[in-house]
């Protein structure tokens, strides 16, 4: 366990060094990290890499196959696909990261409360999470889209509301197990406030699995956004995302005749998600060796 309790703090730098070394030795995880960084940075620095505007329609260059001018070709409105994929990465990665982190935040807060206070608070929150889990995530997302409407900011809200349950369960179970430990009792006996006991004493012990789960969720949400935008219910296509670029592949005509319009964005999503998953696996090996 990578406890960051006070006694271990002196050793933490060597533990950190050991963990980094372990991670660097994991080839797949390192490859994942490198690909993540490459794709992330090309999305961030998109304006330096392409001179095309992602939303600029050029009817003179409709459905052009990849060439030296348009590296990934153009779509049916003549928009440059290389530029759309770079700028689209910004939105897709943002949706994945913000959705996963805020989902984890909700999960951690509710999980700590449920696990620490127990009794009816716990029962109520457990039942709430069960209600959420009875709906398949995709359908839950679709219901929320109907109520709130599509669009980037609504998507972020929807992903955080629908993505907290696994973290909640994990944190709650860990809290249940640790609540009776001597060090918690001692902290309470010293008159430490409930919130400090919860968040300063117990929570650090749960951090490693939460980080791993968050990484997995980033990958999951990028896939969800892609699916949702593929259905035409995600972000409107004036703002490119990896998902809504792939929306073109809803027509069999595009699938048969314009491979670059769907193969390239599909491969980019797959590579990025694969990289995140390899990275997450590596993190799990280092942080959470119990559950591989």
């Amino acid at each position: 366990m990578t406890t960051i309790s006070k006694a271990a703090k002196g050793k933490s730098s060597s533990l950190l060094r050991k963990n980094i070394k372990k991670f660097v030795n994991n080839k797949l995880a390192m490859v994942g990290l490198i690909f993540m960084i490459i794709i992330l940075f090309s999305a961030i620095f998109a304006p330096l890499l392409t001179q095309y505007e992602p939303a600029k329609i050029d009817l003179k260059a409709k459905s052009v196959a990849p060439n030296s001018e348009h590296l990934f070709g153009t779509d049916k409105l003549g928009r440059d696909l290389f530029s759309r994929i770079l700028y689209g990465g910004r939105v897709s990665i943002l949706v994945g990261v913000v959705g996963a982190f805020s989902g984890s935040l909700i999960g951690v807060v509710l999980g700590s409360i449920a696990g620490y206070f127990g009794k009816w608070t716990d029962m109520l929150l457990i039942r709430l999470s069960e209600v959420f889990q009875t709906f398949p995530q995709m359908i839950l997302i679709l219901i929320m889209v109907t109520i709130l409407g599509p669009g980037l900011s609504n998507l972020l809200i929807i992903f955080s509301i629908t993505g907290w349950m696994t973290t909640f369960r994990m944190v709650r179970n860990e809290f249940m197990a640790l609540r009776g430990e001597t060090y918690v009792k001692v902290a309470e006996a010293f008159g430490m406030s409930k919130s400090s006991v919860m968040f300063k004493q117990i929570l650090p012990n749960v951090f490693s699995p939460v980080i791993v789960a968050t990484t997995v969720n980033i990958a999951g949400f990028i896939l969800s956004e892609a699916g949702l935008s593929f259905l035409g219910l995600g972000v409107p296509s004036s703002t490119p995302t990896w998902g809504n670029i792939l929306n073109a592949a809803k027509s069999i005509e595009v699938i048969s005749n314009y491979w670059w319009m769907w193969v390239i964005p599909g491969v980019v999503i797959s590579i990025f998600v694969l990289a995140v998953n390899f990275f997450g696996d590596g993190l799990r090996d280092v942080l959470d060796p119990k559950q591989q």
Partner: peptide
């Protein structure tokens, strides 16, 4: 298998 979007 977990990384490729199902619909893709």
């Amino acid at each position: 298998g977990q990384s490729i979007p199902q619909f893709f």
